[in-house]
Each structure stands twice: as structure tokens, then as C-alpha cells.
Design a protein around this nucleic acid. Sequence first.
DNA 1: CCATATCTGTAGCGAACACTACATTTATGG
DNA 2: CCATAAATGTAGTGTTCGCTACAGATATGG
Lengths: 200, 200
Amino acid sequence: MAMGRPREFDADAALDQAMEVFWRHGYEGATIAQLTEAMGINPPSLYAAFGNKEGLLKAALDRYTAKRAAWMEGVLNAPTARDVAERMLMGTADSQTDPDNPPGCLLVQGGLACGTGSENVPFELAARRALTEDQLRERFVRAKKEGDLKQTADAAALARYLSAVSAGMGVMASSGADREALRQVANVSVKVFEEQSTKR
Amino acid sequence: MAMGRPREFDADAALDQAMEVFWRHGYEGATIAQLTEAMGINPPSLYAAFGNKEGLLKAALDRYTAKRAAWMEGVLNAPTARDVAERMLMGTADSQTDPDNPPGCLLVQGGLACGTGSENVPFELAARRALTEDQLRERFVRAKKEGDLKQTADAAALARYLSAVSAGMGVMASSGADREALRQVANVSVKVFEEQSTKR
DNA sequence: CCATATCTGTAGCGAACACTACATTTATGG
DNA sequence: CCATAAATGTAGTGTTCGCTACAGATATGG
């Protein structure tokens, strides 16, 4: 069997560039011309590798979550629920205002409402946001078992709350909120967990 | 001076329909064809009345905030900072899951990141979100003067926090979160204000 | 009743969109 | 060294986008 001509570009490096275009302009605002230029390839290479624009988005989202996995593991490994919340929100504040990437969060501004024909893009983003929320909820269930979170605490509600605050910070960051503003929000938000924690 | 042929459609009623299209599909996802059909007019009437697509969005945003003004006044008239927060977040949870309008918040999903040529749409939305945050901040300054909010409380940070939570709830609502889920977030969020309030 | 001014509907403008046909190039398997 | 298979670059495809020219309709001012 012949194997065909090998790909000349690095798919991961190209995805990093595509990710940034989607991040900055949203799914519908990003054009194939912008994407191919940033990726350093021509349209046929893009379509051969990723199928279509939506396939490219999914691949970029996979890479986005993969890159954040290590950080997220560090968040979940914090000793207490309160520390999980603090690491989560402070890390979110910092990454959403990191000059090395576009402001905000790809999973938020990538496309909350889309036009006819792209209806599942918002669902795609929502599904990936939900994964983080699930991880947090399970972590808080564990925190209750371990006793650092009150038995009366609602793990699902707390996880949803953290998810909402992160998304809200993403909205603010996307329109220019600076790091200090987001850290203020994080600091206020964490107080909820101090009230829900057992005294030490 | 001649006055010309009078307009045959009701501008406010047409704006209500345009608002809903922008709300459901976002600025870039909404097409002129969808807008004109929903508004019951033809493109020349739209352009004569609102200039262009962005002008129509601004007019729709004006109407959106005008319609919410009465509700917002009720929020700010709550007796204490804690009650302001509760009314704000509970009302947000309800309106963002009201079956009479699209899920979520127009000022959030209308367009956080846009393509080349629509760069000021996100700023337009952000400016209007900032107005609400300003109102909240001033209300919390008043609450400190009136004594129901601790003197150590940071009015600006609390306003930003409420703004972030509302936006985050909008993100969740846009992807199908139900009313109960948003109310859970609201309930958790309000706890911050109980800690920042003076004992009674 | 006419001149002027504005709205309305039809019809279509140029540009940009996502996407692809096709010939060429570059690898592998035998 | 040839047949096969896949990626590439050029140069488009048809469609949809926001927007508008134009002619006819409908009001007012004098």
C-alpha cells in the first residue's frame, strides 16, 4: 500500500494559531481566509485535515482543553474546597488577562449565539464548560467526605456557582477588564467558600 | 416645506422583533433577511430608519435597556444592599429563563467577539453592561452611608462581582441552563452580601 | 393642484463567504 | 522504477452577505 504525500505543516502548531483566531473573533467572526493565513496553510490543506470550519473549531477546542488540563489538575489538587475555589478563580483571572493570549475565555466568547447553520457551536462550547463544572462538583463531593466542606453544603450548587463566576469574568475580560478587576471579583467570590467551610 | 410620506410601520414594535433576532442569533449571526422578515418591513425601510445593521443594533439595545429600566429601579430601591443583590440576581435568573424571550441576556450573547468591521459591537454591549454596574456601585456606596453594609466593604468590588455573576448566569442560560439552576447560583452568590452586611 | 419630501417594494449590486476541482508534487509499497 | 496514495497551490465555484438604485406611492406646504 502506498502511503501518500506526508503533511508539510505541524497540525498542533497550526491549531494553536487557529485557536487564537477563534478566540479573538469568535466562530462566526473568524473567516477561513484569516484562519488559513494564521495557520500558514491553504484552504485545501485545512479541509483535508479538519473537514470543515466546525471540525477545525472542535479540534481547536480539544487543544484548548488539553492545554488547560495540567492547570486544572493543579486546581483540583488543592487541599480544601476553599483553596480549589481560590486557585480556580485566581488562575482564571490571570489567564483571561494574559497578554500572551486574547483576553477572556475561548469557551465563552467563541460563540454563545450563532446564526442558522451553526446552531451546535454554542452547544459544543457549553459541553466543554460543563466538563469543568463536573470536575468541580466531584471535587466538592470529596471535600464534604473529607470534612473541610460543611455537610450542609450543596456541591452541585457550588460548582455551578464557580462555573458562573468564571464565565462572568470571561465576559468582563473580553471587553477589556484588567487583571486587578478580575482578581477583585475572585476575592469576593471566594468568601462564599469560607462561609461553607468547617472551622479549623 | 413638504413633509414626505409617513412611515407605515411602528418603529418600537419593529425594534422588539429585531431585538429578539439579535438576542437569539447574536449580531453577526443575525442576517438582514431575518431581521426584515421579523420586523415586517423591507430592507430600504430598515436602512432609512436605522442607517445600517449596527445602527439597528444600537436602537434595539436602547429599547432593551429602556424596557429593563423599571425593573432595575425596583432592584435599586430594595431596602438593603443584601436585598438589592437578591432582587438583582433572582430577577436575572427569572428573566434569562423567561419563555417569552430568548434565553440569556442580549448584552452578553449579542456579541462578545466579532469579526473585522464589527469591532465596536462588543464595546457597545460592554458600555451598556457597565451602566448597570455603575448603578449598583453607587447603590452600595449609599448602603455604606446608611449603615446596612459594613464600612470595610468595597462597593466597587461588590458591584463588579454582581455584574460578573449576572453575566455568568447569562452564559449558562444561553446554553440551556434552567431556572432552578440559575436560582441556585443566585442563592449562593447572595451569601457574600450577608457576610458583608451589619448584624441586625 | 402642484412641487417637494419621504417612505415603500422590486430587483439586484459588488464583495465576501465557506468550500472545492484539478493539476502537480512528494511520499510509500512492491 | 513504477503504480498508488495523499497533500499542496492555484484558481476558482455557487451562495449569501450587507446594502442600494430606482420607480412608484403618499403625505405636506403653498
